[in-house]
């Protein structure tokens, strides 16, 4: 379709949509982190939907023709019926739907809600938190009748889902948030009209593990004790895992450039599992099992007991995408 550009000339540009579901807004900021290049986004695309930056109503998107959006970057997990509805609408309207960032791809931090239940979350949010005063025990209702008419709120689901658990997804861009230069690579690739990777591919990332990007010195790993980062002053040159800190590097896809490990903090796993690994947490568990330096059950157990919160540590970014998807209530 043609449109008027700033100079008043007509130009044909691919249509771009950006949406946020259950997310923190960091993925939107990652786009702004393109700095001056962000101006090239509207220069190359016709931005048709971006709730965080422009005033567009859901009805506008719902009224679009199927496949009329060329590229949709969808960030955020599926927490409510509103998120799910927009996922379905944007799937129908978009030629290429990309799960943008860890929340849409794997569930990420919002997905840690799958370690508890909807009931417990409502109880904490509306009753138990110290700053809440709610003597009438009011909780949000999805439908409510008022004299002026009926009002409604989206349904809060029992579990957080990933985008590909509700609709078909063409590509996945990992990261919490995706690194700006990686986003740019993807935009350039699409603008250039070059051959696209096969559907279902992870794009804007590497195909190794974070360890390959980490500059720290690795030794033959033999771990007798796990420590948490605040318990030691870690050597700045040595592999953090060698020092007993649970670093998700061996079970995380490369692509970030080893930012956290470079800054002295262990990798938390936000770029998701490396190629050909389905369950990042189990992959990490296997890696750790190989380096624990003990052969007696009681000794092994004592070492493992030093790992606090294994589900939240190994599946910090991938709980909804893990084999079980949630902690059993």
């Amino acid at each position: 379709m043609t449109m008027q550009d700033v100079a008043g000339q007509t130009a044909t540009k691919p249509k771009l949509a950006l949406y946020w579901a259950a997310s923190c807004g960091g993925c939107e900021i990652a786009i702004l982190e393109l700095h001056e290049k962000v101006l090239e986004v509207p220069a190359n695309f016709d931005l048709v939907f971006w709730p965080v930056a422009m005033d567009v109503k859901y009805a506008d998107v719902e009224g679009m023709e199927p496949d009329s959006i060329d590229l949709c970057l969808f960030n955020g997990a599926i927490r409510t019926s509103e998120n799910e509805h927009l996922a379905q609408v944007l799937r129908e309207k978009s030629k290429t739907l990309v799960a943008f960032g860890s929340c849409a791809m794997e569930g990420c931090i919002p997905g840690l809600a799958n370690a508890t239940t909807k009931e417990a979350i409502f109880n904490a949010a509306y009753h138990a938190s110290p700053s809440t005063v709610n003597p009438d025990r009011v909780e949000p209702q999805t439908i409510w009748d008022l004299p002026e008419g009926q009002v409604s709120l989206p349904t809060f689901f029992e579990s957080v889902k990933t985008l590909d658990q509700v609709v078909d997804v063409d590509y996945f861009i990992p990261g919490c948030p995706p690194e700006a230069h990686r986003i740019w690579e993807v935009i350039e690739l699409i603008v250039s009209g070059g051959p696209l990777p096969p559907p279902g591919a992870v794009i804007g990332a590497g195909d190794q593990t974070v360890c390959e990007e980490c500059l720290r010195t690795r030794e033959e790993k033999r771990i007798k004790e796990f420590v948490r980062p605040h318990q030691i002053i870690a050597d700045p040159e040595l592999c953090l895992l060698d020092q007993g800190i649970v670093c998700m590097g061996p079970a995380t896809r490369s692509g970030c450039g080893g930012l956290c490990v470079g800054a002295g903090s262990p990798c938390r796993g936000c770029y998701g599992p490396p190629p050909n690994v389905r369950d990042q947490g189990l992959n990490m568990m296997s890696a750790l099992a190989s380096v624990v330096d003990a052969t007696e059950a009681t000794e092994i157990q004592a070492i493992l007991d030093q790992i606090a919160d294994p589900v939240g540590t190994f599946h910090r970014f991938s709980l909804p995408h893990s084999t079980f998807g949630r902690v059993q209530p």
Binding site: M285, S290, T295, A297, I307, P310, V311
Partner: peptide
């Protein structure tokens, strides 16, 4: 290795 993995899996 299996023993270490099993204890880890039980914990998980």
């Amino acid at each position: 290795l299996c023993l270490r993995r099993t204890l880890m899996m039980k914990k998980l």
